[in-house]
């Protein structure tokens, strides 16, 4: 009696039920694939990016990213840069002098490099390893200059969270999912 005979009718009934449900689940999964095939982009996956026309340079990018420091960095669109001597992205309001002294720079991490090209033009480069994405330079450049400094999600850093934690708090609602094949907003002319 150590191996009690199973109740054959009960077992087969359960077996049948299980088989039936599995079949139903398989059919359901198949139907689901068919249904979603229309909604599936085989060639696309998505990454997060900032629409610079909507960015209000609120500073959340520096603080809200799951990465510390943030995966959002300032980029320089050289094509539309005015190469100004008095760069409103580089210098604080009312700069003491137009030189690289710390008292004149707006960037808290000195992540912008100012390089003399020819009179009166200066080139400005973002040193990305230092940039924290605080957008202080972006505000100056966008409001009073050409807007060649702007924030972008850097995809060599971004871990592409399913729900971007900066997007959740973005003051300008500027974050969106973009196709990975075209992952940057490139400013070629200012708008």
């Amino acid at each position: 009696m150590s191996h009690p005979a199973p109740n054959p009718s009960s077992v087969s009934r359960r077996q049948f039920l299980r088989e039936g449900m599995r079949l139903a689940a398989m059919t359901g999964a198949g139907a689901f694939v068919g249904l979603s095939s229309g909604r599936t982009g085989a060639r696309e996956h998505y990454v997060w990016q900032i629409d610079p026309t909507k960015c209000v340079y609120c500073g959340n990018c520096a603080t809200a990213c799951v990465l510390k420091p943030s995966a959002v960095k300032c980029v320089q669109a050289y094509e539309i840069c005015g190469y100004c001597d008095l760069c409103t992205g580089y210098f604080v309001p009312e700069p003491n002098a137009l030189n690289t002294g710390a008292e004149n720079q707006v960037c808290p991490t000195a992540a912008i490099e100012r390089k003399f090209i020819e009179d009166p033009y200066y080139e400005y480069n973002i040193i990305e390893s230092r940039c924290i994405g605080c957008a202080k330079c972006v505000e100056g450049c966008t409001r009073f200059g050409n807007g060649s400094f702007y924030l972008q999600v850097r995809h060599d850093r971004c871990v592409n969270c399913n729900e971007c934690s900066i997007a959740r708090v973005c003051a300008g609602d500027a974050f969106r999912r973009v196709p990975a094949s075209n992952p940057y907003f490139l400013k070629t002319s200012a708008h």
């Binding site: 026309t53 094509e79 539309i80 190469y83 020819e118 966008t142 050409n146 807007g147 002319s189």
Partner: peptide
């Protein structure tokens, strides 16, 4: 919206 306030320069050196 910012316009192109300062037209990009035309460089004389071979920059």
């Amino acid at each position: 919206a910012s316009e192109m306030r300062f037209p990009p320069p035309e460089f004389e050196t071979d920059y």
